[in-house]
């Protein structure tokens, strides 16, 4: 399965190097051009510095954290369900979280300020948790190919329900709330400010750490539940930990940036082809790869059509949608052969 000849650690280093490069480019490109030399102490003028510090840096950090979270969440869910198509967006976790946040805004009176932000985190977490529990209950009843299809269909149904719920909320929402809601239509990092980024810097690493600690368990689980049990794995506790960490991370990501699709599908897949299926390597590599993808995509979103801005969720879906389709077709072909 593993592609290149290089040692796996080298591959992670390559990814890290690419991420550093993307961050450098992202930090220096934008509507207001800033020289990359700024990173080596060549400070720009006051306005340039302010733009960099107040706008660009929090946005880059948020991109790194959310990208890492979505990709690692996807990798972990794929491992847990032993289903290569499990993804927080496809299975409806992101939309569930989005619906919960939207419900909070419309029914809870749309709190503003830092307290409102944490309330939204909580709502997103609960929404994602409910959906993952539901999806898991559905997924465990089936085995093999049947499970793959059922899970995807369940995700589809949940996405439809969440979409309808969102439409219903939009219907009863006031004009003011409606404008707040429109954020959840297409994910964007555009309103990254320090308070939100700092909150993300506390919550998301927690979720990421939680996932990283599940790597060994996920590897054992791939051998089948019986073998894993014989090897001393508490599958029940592993499931709970993965679902909690993914729900926390995805819920917070959605509350902060809306729904940014397909990162959780795309990144682990590409990396699995490149460096093999072992989670001890795949999880950290997915974090780096997800961060890389979202930072690059968001830099494009900021600069492609400037001064106008493209929602970054649109870009990732443009990339991920066709990849997903290709993946489905390829699976079908290998099944027939």
């Amino acid at each position: 399965m593993s592609g290149g000849q290089a040692r796996p650690e080298t591959k992670v280093l390559v990814l890290l190097g690419l991420l550093a490069l993307a961050l450098m480019i992202g930090a220096s490109s934008g509507v207001i051009g800033l020289s990359p030399r700024l990173l080596f102490g060549d400070w720009p003028d006051a306005l340039g510095w302010q733009v960099w510090w107040q706008l660009r840096l929090p946005r880059l950090l948020l991109g790194v954290l959310i990208g890492a979270m979505l990709a690692a969440g996807g990798a972990a869910m794929q491992g847990l369900f032993r289903n290569p198509l499990a993804d927080p967006t496809l299975l409806g976790l992101a939309n569930g979280a989005g619906l919960a946040v939207a419900a909070l805004i419309v029914l809870g009176g749309g709190m503003a300020g830092p307290l409102g932000l944490y309330a939204q985190f909580l709502a997103g977490f609960i929404g994602a948790l409910v959906v993952s529990a539901l999806v898991f209950q559905i997924g465990r009843r089936y085995r093999g190919r049947e499970a793959v299809v059922t899970l995807l269909l369940a995700g589809l149904a949940i996405n439809v329900i969440a979409g309808a719920g969102g439409g219903l909320l939009a219907f009863i929402a006031s004009d003011e709330q409606l404008r707040q809601l429109s954020l959840w239509g297409m994910g964007s990092l555009a309103h990254a400010l320090w308070p939100a980024t700092l909150a993300a810097m506390v919550l998301l690493p927690l979720a990421l750490l939680g996932l990283a600690r599940c790597a060994r368990g996920l590897d054992l689980l791939q051998l089948g539940e019986l073998t894993a049990h014989a090897a001393g794995l508490d599958a029940q506790s592993l499931r709970r930990r993965v679902i909690l960490a993914v729900s926390l991370g995805v819920g917070a990501s959605v509350a902060l940036a809306g729904i940014i699709g397909f990162i959780g599908l795309l990144v682990p897949h590409v990396l699995r082809l490149w460096m093999g299926p072992g989670h001890r390597l795949l999880l950290p590599a997915s974090m780096v790869g997800g961060a890389l993808l979202l930072v690059v995509a968001d830099t494009l979103a900021r600069t492609m059509m400037s001064p106008a801005e493209v929602p970054v969720g649109l870009l990732t879906s443009l990339l991920g949608g066709p990849y997903f389709l290709w993946l489905l077709l390829r699976r079908r072909r290998t099944a027939m052969e």
Binding site: G30, V31, I32, L47, V51, Q54, L55, R56, R59, S188, A190, H191, R302, M305, S306, P307, A308, E309, P311
Partner: peptide, 18 residues
């Protein structure tokens, strides 16, 4: 006027540049 047609979303940096 900003140099694009219709109504567009404008990010923070672009606002500063405008």
């Amino acid at each position: 006027r900003p140099d694009f047609s219709g109504y567009k979303r404008v990010g923070g940096e672009a606002l500063v540049a405008l």
